[in-house]
């Protein structure tokens, strides 16, 4: 049985990852390179927002202050968001968007596989519902990594640049902190130590098939899980929270 405060914090991490990446993907809506991929990315965004709702609804219940999922999304500042740094990185171009997606999907897949067996029935239920969506996300982003990495000289160059710039955010996800360790010990959270080798094996496999190379400098940035973010999160929240901050309780 996990401490309720720990569980609340842990649920926010799960929900925040999904919300911020979903919001980033939503920025592609109407701007995709072709109609088919515009729809594909916004489909994934909607999957992620749906997962966010499940995590926040449960978080609100655990918090026990009568808040709902919208209030949890709209009335917290950047320092109270616990998503990993990777998901808040800007879309830039298709290569960055796909690379960010793949680096996250591979983690998210193994994370949810573990959470499917959580000792918390609600966590397990949400993970079981989400794993089908996440399995598709990983297939989608892996295929684009390979297609473009092992594509033309130009596409390879753009993908390699994105990998060089984003890989420093890949380590934080599988690096357990005290909360991760306590949650894993109760059997409610996932064991990141167990996920880490599987994650990097998957990343290496896809990079190989995409003929891309990982940067030699493997220093990983971290801080998101503790609420220490890159400059980008504030701008994302300004967009996301504007209406509710300006007109609290607005409905439409």
């Amino acid at each position: 049985m996990a401490n309720q405060q720990d569980l609340y914090q842990y649920l926010l991490r799960l929900g925040d990852n999904a919300l911020i990446l979903g919001q980033r993907l939503g920025e592609w809506c109407g701007h995709g390179p072709v109609l088919e991929q515009d729809i594909a990315l916004t489909n994934i965004a909607l999957d992620l927002i749906g997962q966010t709702r499940s995590w926040y609804q449960y978080a609100a219940e655990v918090e026990g202050k009568g808040r709902n999922e919208d209030e949890i999304a709209h009335f917290r500042d950047a320092i109270d968001f616990y998503n990993v740094l990777l998901v808040e990185q800007p879309n830039e171009d298709w290569a960055y968007t796909i690379t960010r997606q793949f680096l996250f999907d591979a983690f998210n897949y193994y994370l949810h596989l573990e959470l499917c067996d959580s000792k918390d029935a609600q966590v397990a239920a949400i993970a079981n519902k989400s794993i089908k969506e996440i399995t598709y996300h990983l297939k989608y982003s892996s295929e684009w990594m390979i297609r473009l990495g092992d594509g033309t000289e130009e596409s390879h160059g753009k993908m390699q640049q994105a990998v060089d710039d984003l890989y420093m955010y890949a380590g934080e996800m599988t690096e357990p902190d005290e909360l991760d360790q306590r949650m894993a010990a109760t059997g409610v959270g996932a064991d990141l130590q167990a996920i880490r080798p599987k994650y990097f094996e998957k990343v290496n496999e896809i990079m190989d098939r995409a003929t891309l190379t990982l940067p030699e400098n493997q220093y990983f940035q971290q801080g998101g899980k503790k609420g220490r973010h890159t400059e980008y999160l504030g701008f994302i929240l300004a967009d996301l929270q504007f209406m509710q901050r300006t007109y609290p309780g607005l409905e439409w």
């Binding site: 109609l35 088919e36 729809i39 594909a40 295929e143």
Partner: peptide, 17 residues
Amino acid sequence: SLHASDAEMAIENARDV
């Protein structure tokens, strides 16, 4: 109908569209 670079991508695009 839709555009795709190969059959595999066509299936995925069809799934999404």
